[in-house]
Design a protein around this nucleic acid. Structure first.
Length: 266
DNA sequence: ATAGGCCTGGAC
DNA sequence: GTCCAGGCCTAT
């Protein structure tokens, strides 16, 4: 489940399981992951201790005692599963880190689009990324600066990780619903007050998702009633807008679905 | 700006 | 079967 809130939650799980532990054996299982993380990489990880797990946008960096770094990106479906001794491995295990306490941290990804790669000390495997969507640096002033010379639709801009890091297709749509902004609006035609509303909308969407993860932390139970309220527009085509009752529409932008209310998002 | 590719599963 | 999928890269 891979936008900022989900990756944050996953990274916390990985951090708890990995930090301070020594890797006994690592291996990528699926051809798609083995392309960038081959058996030579895996072999060098035996005996390495993990000293930290960081998240930046939707990326995760696993810091090793040697200074090397494992870079992980979940793409569409990746997630971590911690497998305790004797427990069964998930169906879609694509990579496994076996640890010195007998547990394993497994990259679980049905579509196998996730990537992981090993990097030398002092190298920076991250692409160019904008400020974190949850940080104060992500502000109306920042958006005004970079939007002045562009005319891409605002929804497409929010998905550009060089502009702001961590927003994906769901929360881009949710944020613009909160902000009451039409996702097709060219960014250079947004007024300062609207930029402020967009920043607030992004923060609302992120905060709501993070609260949801906190609520579910440690419990296998899911609250069906709350789950149905999880999104205001995403995947709700035809359903009534929770603000004005008009039907939620689905449109396509940059090859991806955008959900919005054409009545109260202007 | 748009389409296609990477992968596989689920909904219809 | 067909279409769609929470991401991102490359080619046209």
């Amino acid at each position: 489940m891979p936008e900022l809130p989900e990756v944050e939650y996953a990274a916390a799980i990985a951090r708890q399981a990995l930090v301070g532990r020594t890797i006994v054996r690592a291996r990528a299982l699926h051809a798609a992951q083995r392309k960038r993380f081959d058996d030579r990489d895996s072999a060098t990880l035996a005996g390495e201790r993990v000293v930290g797990v960081r998240r930046r946008g939707k990326h995760q960096l696993i810091d090793l005692e040697s200074g090397r770094v494992i870079h992980v990106h979940f793409r569409m479906n990746g997630d971590w599963v911690v497998v305790l001794p004797g427990a069964s491995v998930p169906n879609y295990a694509r990579a496994v880190f076996e640890l010195d306490d007998g547990s394993s941290v497994v990259l679980d990804d049905s579509r196998a689009l996730s990537t992981l790669s090993l990097h030398a000390p002092a190298s920076d495997p991250l692409p160019s990324l904008g400020p974190e969507a949850t940080s104060p640096e992500f502000s109306a002033a920042w958006l005004q600066n970079i939007f002045a010379s562009r005319r891409t639709p605002i929804k497409v801009a929010l998905l550009d990780q060089r502009i702001v890091a961590g927003i994906g297709n769901i929360y881009a749509a949710e944020a613009l619903w909160f902000a009451r902004i039409d996702p097709r609006r060219p960014v250079n035609r947004l007024r300062p007050m609207q930029l402020t509303a967009i920043v607030k909308g992004v923060r609302s969407a992120m905060a709501k998702a993070i609260r949801r993860h906190q609520r579910y932390y440690g419990s296998e139970q899911t609250d069906g009633a709350r789950d149905s309220q999880r999104f205001n527009v995403y995947d709700r085509e035809g359903a009534p807008c929770r603000r004005c009752g008009a039907p939620i529409r689905r449109i396509t932008q940059a090859g991806r679905s955008t959900y919005c209310c054409r009545s109260c998002q202007r």
